[in-house]
Write a protein that binds this DNA or RNA. Sequence first.
DNA 1: CATGAATGAGAGTTCATTCAT
DNA 2: TATGAATGAACTCTCATTCAT
Lengths: 212, 212, 212, 212
Amino acid sequence: MSATPTQALPRERDPKVARRAALLAAAREVFTVRGYHDAKVDDIVAAANVAKGTFYLYFEDKRSVFAELVDQVVAQLTAAIVRVDVDADIEDQVRRNIRGVIGVLRDDPLVVRLLLSYAPGLDPAFESHLRAFYDGVKRLLEASLLEGQALGIVARGDVRIFAAFTIGGLKELLLDASRAEAGAAYESPALEEAVLRLLEGMYLIVGRPVRP
Amino acid sequence: MSATPTQALPRERDPKVARRAALLAAAREVFTVRGYHDAKVDDIVAAANVAKGTFYLYFEDKRSVFAELVDQVVAQLTAAIVRVDVDADIEDQVRRNIRGVIGVLRDDPLVVRLLLSYAPGLDPAFESHLRAFYDGVKRLLEASLLEGQALGIVARGDVRIFAAFTIGGLKELLLDASRAEAGAAYESPALEEAVLRLLEGMYLIVGRPVRP
Amino acid sequence: MSATPTQALPRERDPKVARRAALLAAAREVFTVRGYHDAKVDDIVAAANVAKGTFYLYFEDKRSVFAELVDQVVAQLTAAIVRVDVDADIEDQVRRNIRGVIGVLRDDPLVVRLLLSYAPGLDPAFESHLRAFYDGVKRLLEASLLEGQALGIVARGDVRIFAAFTIGGLKELLLDASRAEAGAAYESPALEEAVLRLLEGMYLIVGRPVRP
Amino acid sequence: MSATPTQALPRERDPKVARRAALLAAAREVFTVRGYHDAKVDDIVAAANVAKGTFYLYFEDKRSVFAELVDQVVAQLTAAIVRVDVDADIEDQVRRNIRGVIGVLRDDPLVVRLLLSYAPGLDPAFESHLRAFYDGVKRLLEASLLEGQALGIVARGDVRIFAAFTIGGLKELLLDASRAEAGAAYESPALEEAVLRLLEGMYLIVGRPVRP
DNA sequence: CATGAATGAGAGTTCATTCAT
DNA sequence: TATGAATGAACTCTCATTCAT
């Protein structure tokens, strides 16, 4: 927009940062394709074109790279979700949130599988990490729903159930979408519309006067 | 209730069957607590109070015990789900299905976590196994929904999306329920009622005459 | 040939002896086909149609069955070899020895491979056993050759070399023969004739007056 | 002989090559003493003063080290054997072959036992490997003998039998020699002479006019 | 005597992590 | 800082042998 010297894609100058990023990218690729346990550190360093020891210069251990990757996506998602302001246009904001989440996953379909791999029980080591995220989102949603109920724009009912069902449904839907080869219905705009409809059906009262 | 010598819980007499069951139970416990990879065969045999070699008398290998456990739950769930007959009382059947699924998981809360651990990407070895089950359920649901749409008792819309969202929502809900310590809302009957309401809101048109 | 009450094939009446024999036969079969290390006790008892524990009622351990099988063949071979009496027809006796050895192996071609598997170094456990046999035969042959040299019917030269070469040659030849599907040259009489010729060429002076 | 800085025995400078060689040497020692099955990877790495994992940096698995050792000797032997050229001095070439084989085994008496351990039946895994070598040598010898018969310098008779007997005799002789503590007769030149004599006796017509 | 389930020491192999260069 | 060879604890699975029934 102006003559700022910043590069469009600031192709990292600092070689240390670049290395770290390369390893992270390689890890994401490998973890996504192979799964956490099948992904060997050897695979990651091979993909990053780096020696094995280098890996440990940038990361504590195998587990911490995975954790960092998860955090990355979590951060992106968190950034995409905004607390619904009841004084503004509700539907628009909900739509925006849905679109945001879909968008993040669309941009980085590989990590979807990683993130959606909640896998409770399969690996206790990551339960806490992933659960923390889901719990956060769930709480955010619950709070919004409660507020909405007070304002009469969310149907009565147990918000925990609403929240859990919503999040679960979205997860499955997006997982499906990340796998679907074609599927016009899984095109972003259609998906967004369909999800909105579902939420409306379930509990969301939009497009109606706030007043009874 | 009578003089039959059979025991209420017939505490398996056949020692081989008993051992197998003991190992299976131990494995379920260990897998559930530790997760597949962290569960060592040593842990399982220790829990079953059996020597290491014994394990291999009853199971091909570690993986096959896990697979068998999954199959067990899948079978229970499959048995609990019936195809909805549109000539009979729809709501009752849907309710029965919901109740059936909830019931199975309630009876065996440990394995829930195991089954709900779809974990795509975390372990390619079991993806196919678990996906096959989910795909089956999804297809069953999709078919029912299509039929329902033809009869006017299911709202219009993409049945794939309906099905995926429903299953995802249920998974998350039941997972939550399996963790909830107290939570009155997660009591079976209330849960059943709440789920029914959600489905109604999303797409199910019940309690109304088929014909306008 | 007469009314002797002995049975032609005295199909052992004593069940214990029969069991033992059955196990031995099974072991021979399995060892021959699979080799010592690949032959599992399970395979042997399966072939003998006997429970695993039974094996240990009749034999100390796996090794001892093998040893006994080797001893069996060694005994047969030892019986087939006679010390050459220089006062009688030399050629005839040599021929008889060759024929005897060939005959034993022909009767029991399975065990040939077992016996010829001298395998020094491959398994120290059996070296001593098999070496003892070969050394015995070698010494026997050496003694005969020495005697023959004294009588002028064996060429001059190192009898140890003669003996070793003879035994090695025979081993290889018989091993080949035990494998040869067709091979007219490996028919017993032809083989016998050929071996005799070789020995004559190497050191045996037959059909000539002892004294020049 | 000059001022070159190269060492007489260039004690491998490349540490990777050195390690590999050390492991190979250790394996040869251990296999030779203990036999293939009794030789544990632990023994080999202990002998090489290396950690267990290191073994697997240099070799696929236990079996492949053994195979490589066998191949090594086979290669040496193969190099030592030349096809007899009938237009040149026959006796000299045969003598050279004999000397070559004896020489190889003399240089590395440990591996002799390994190589001579044909052990059919003792381990099917290596039968093919070793048999391939013996069959090769046998075919080479047979071809030479056939050629020789056509030229009248090899006696009539079944060349397969000649070849088998020769190779078996040599094996046994060299095995004996590799064990013989003292034994003047087993000194290389004497051995070479004796073998030549045996071959002459059996079928080789040397030093005589081709014409009757 | 016979059975065959149970045993458990031990084998080969893997792989996250370390560290000398 | 980067390397990659070395490490060794740990894991799964095997199988000869034992022993209660």
